[in-house]
Design a binder for these strands. Structure first.
Lengths: 236, 236
DNA sequence: GGTCCATGAAAGATACCACCTTTGAAATGC
DNA sequence: GCATTTCAAAGGTGGTATCTTTCATGGACC
């Protein structure tokens, strides 16, 4: 049974994923502009794969509204206005490319819009466990923040916000947890965060958690708005 | 060449779209529960099409995270938590099915979250034409509202809100115009709207438009929040 | 006899190929 | 300038090959 091939890299996990990545990035990055045409045959040659694989890729790109295909014409790149900008892959590609700053700003603004209502929702709908968890996480945030342990602080912060979104009782909100995670992570990595979290931030996290714990939607919403105030100022 | 076949084409515009519709609806509607398995062969027989078509469909459903496929296992239905709930088709299917009420509530809440910030954004970024259009539409709303012409009122209302979203300068917001349209239309059709729009609604539309016209983000946001207040009360 | 791991077989997705059909843009003809 | 023809490219079919995962079988060891 000697496993001669220990090769841990099945690499070609799925053939098309790498093609999707490359084409998606080119479109989102703007190297392939709206109206530009591709053909299946051309892509076959370019990537050295069969028609089937290219077709699969086109179906996927089509369902993200990055392209559409017409007979006799080929595959046409769509203009940005048509893209499914909530698709996780498109969000990722935009954050990787030259439009990072703009995308980051959009996501931050979206977060600022959604989180206050998510907090109110959590105050209404959270389970007992979730309310307890919110208090616990807010406590950890203070401890880690005052100790200046930034990385752990970030991890708990992400957990805290994800908890609120999922407790909000609104699946459209919980689906945004990746967005919020990305924004929080980006803020820390870009050095937009103070060396040690401000007292104000710690206090408002605690206020949000407390309001959720005592099922007080109005206070939860207000506290979250307060928490986000400085974030909003930074982007406007 | 005599076209013997005038056949008005059995609608099957594109083959797979109807299959996607049917399967998507079953999954979203819950007839196909999470973990349930399908195979390509079985679907081939069921719909009487070739493997290629089924594969194309699976690629699309997969990219919406409604299913995932594994070798030797088949195609497995994903649990609702994984779905791309911002995909226009999924939103539509959910609104058609038994989960309509819940989905409607979620979308309304999302709208309430986003529109105030969109209004603020519009006050900052709108073009001169857009500012003028906002004022004009608000004026039309008053006229139509006072005249009790509900259908035209709805159409202009939809146009007004779509304008704000697209003028907001945030593509994540503008991508939600379908959502807002759907919510507005639903409110009217479900008889949630008063016979003639309330004075308060007319006045706050005007206030939003005026704030945008004079590039006053804070007032625009506040006026929009005021406009949405009664909507929010209705869903909580 | 019961538990555990190796082995093999089978099921079903992934991938490639060759070929036919349909569509609609563009060239051509009147 | 309109109708007709042409034809390139996508849509669709079905066959074959490959690969991965599961599941059942069977032997070894406790």
């Amino acid at each position: 049974m000697a496993q001669p091939l220990q090769d841990p890299a099945p690499a070609a996990a799925v053939m098309y994923s790498s093609i999707i990545e490359e084409l998606g990035r080119s479109i989102v990055g703007g190297e392939l502009g709206p109206g530009e045409r591709l053909t299946i045959e051309e892509l076959q040659n370019r990537f050295g794969v069969s028609r089937t694989v290219i077709r699969d890729c086109m179906r996927i790109l089509e369902s993200m509204n990055l392209v559409f295909s017409k007979r006799r014409v080929g595959i046409v790149v769509q203009s940005p206005g048509h893209w499914n900008v909530y698709d996780a892959r498109i969000i990722r590609w935009r954050l990787e490319g030259t439009s990072r700053a703009r995308q980051f700003r959009s996501l931050t603004e979206l977060r600022c819009a959604v989180e206050p209502l998510a907090a109110a929702g959590a105050a209404r709908h959270a389970t007992e466990e979730q309310r307890a968890a919110a208090l616990r996480l807010a406590g950890q945030l203070r401890a880690l923040g005052e100790a200046g342990r930034l990385e752990e602080f970030l991890a708990v912060d992400i957990e805290f916000h994800a908890l609120l979104l999922s407790a909000s009782g609104n699946e459209m909100f919980s689906a945004l947890d990746d967005v919020v995670t990305e924004v929080l992570r980006g803020r820390t990595n870009q050095g937009l965060m103070p060396r040690t979290p401000r007292e104000h931030a710690l206090a408002s996290h605690e206020a949000v958690a407390a309001a959720i714990a005592r099922a007080d939607p109005h206070s939860a919403e207000a506290a979250m708005r307060d928490l986000l105030a400085e974030v909003r100022e930074a982007i406007t």
